[in-house]
Design a protein around this nucleic acid. Structure first.
Length: 361
DNA sequence: AATTCGTGGGT
DNA sequence: TACCCAAGAAT
């Protein structure tokens, strides 16, 4: 059964005009809005996935300064790309972006594809990003449905489907297709998102300032605080670890590269022992088995609690020294204080760097 | 379809 | 404090 949420008498053109003219007047001056270079639009859209504008801005400047063209990004070392992404989170975005840019270099002559099929096949480019690039960079009337659009449309058209459910996105894509401005798809799509960010906020929306208030069913019926419907995520688990800050006789600290898949893939960290399986007395023996080094634990330096989307790390950081043995693990290596600055660390381990500096100084 | 994947700011 | 939330994609 197909449900159309678009009222038969909905004044499409007046709605478009109200939204687009508001956006052109009130839009924020953002660095990725200076031109419509598809590469810059692409980079910005990847960075903006699940990430606030204010957080992205400095990363966007630094990233474009370092990798101004698809070619420069394609030819860069992955570690350098991850270093530029350090602290931004969702690091597979960076690795997928570089992978996709390499494909653009090889298969599309360095030109970002301007059609849904080729664009959607690029790594890290899903339905939203595909539509955003097509509409913003190429002016095509394609939907770009993100969380803002689903919230805004849930209110305007009184859509009561759970926006946390994957299938709900299709409802809103159909709605966008039925009302998008063919004259200015870019301003229309961006206008919806800008409206969601500035006016039609998740909580306490500023309906009195809204340029499309007269078209909003939720406002008309006093439902703006009820919609959208969104079920809440389940609670997260807690994982306790001992993080080991191990110094050798050459005043270097042991670091290791994380696996190439999964959480914080290919980033660096200090070795961690799960306190679910081990305790302070069994860690040295475990460590010798894993790394081939006898260590002496000195003392607890700090405790770090780090919250991810789906789990929490509780890191008890211990200083330690190498007693004897020979390191025999590939991804692990001793690293000088100076060279640490070249390695990409997740924020969880950046919190430990001040203590490492003290240890090595 | 449900989980996994980061982080910082708002309330 | 403890949630909630953000211009999602991959699996």
């Amino acid at each position: 059964m197909t449900i159309s949420f678009l009222p038969k008498q909905f004044p499409i053109h007046a709605f478009q005009e109200a939204l687009v003219s508001w956006f052109k007047l009130e839009q924020r001056d953002l660095p990725w809005r200076k031109d419509q270079d598809p590469y810059k639009v692409w980079v910005s859209e990847i960075m903006l996935q699940q990430t606030k504008v204010d957080t992205v801005i400095p990363y966007f400047y630094r990233f474009l300064d370092k990798f101004p063209t698809p070619e420069s990004l394609a030819n860069a070392d992955e570690q350098e790309v991850l270093k530029a992404w350090e602290g931004l989170g969702y690091y597979s975005r960076a690795r997928n972006l570089q992978s996709a840019v390499k494909e653009v270099m090889e298969n599309y002559g360095g030109k970002v594809p301007n059609n849904p099929k080729e664009l959607g096949n690029l790594k890290g480019v899903g339905p939203y990003t595909k539509g955003a690039i097509l509409s913003i960079a190429f002016g095509q009337p394609e939907p770009a449905v993100d969380g803002n659009v689903m919230r805004v449309f849930s209110r305007i058209f009184k859509v009561e489907e759970d926006i946390a459910k994957p299938k709900t996105r299709k409802i809103h894509e159909d709605l966008v297709r039925s009302v998008i401005s063919k004259e200015d798809p870019s301003a229309f799509n961006q206008g919806l998102m800008e409206l969601g960010a500035l006016i039609c906020k998740p909580r306490n929306p500023d309906c009195l300032l809204c340029p499309v208030q007269e078209y909003c069913m939720a406002y008309e019926q006093g439902l703006e605080d009820i919609l959208p419907i969104k079920t809440k995520a389940k609670s997260q688990r807690v994982e306790p670890y001992a993080a080991l800050l191990i110094k050798n006789e050459r005043n270097e600290v042991l670091v290791q590269k994380r696996p190439e898949k999964g959480l914080l893939a290919n980033l660096y960290e200090f070795p961690m022992a799960s306190l679910k399986d081990l305790d302070l007395t069994t860690i040295p023996n475990w460590f010798y088995g894993e790394y081939g080094l006898h260590i002496d634990i000195i003392q607890k330096e700090t405790v770090v609690k780090h919250v991810f989307s789906h789990l929490t790390w509780e890191l008890d950081a211990y200083s330690a020294t190498v007693q004897s043995g020979k390191l025999d693990v590939g991804p692990a290596t001793f690293c000088s204080l100076k060279d640490l600055e070249l390695l990409p660390f997740p924020v969880s381990h950046q919190k430990l760097l001040p203590f490492v500096k003290t240890l090595l100084t």
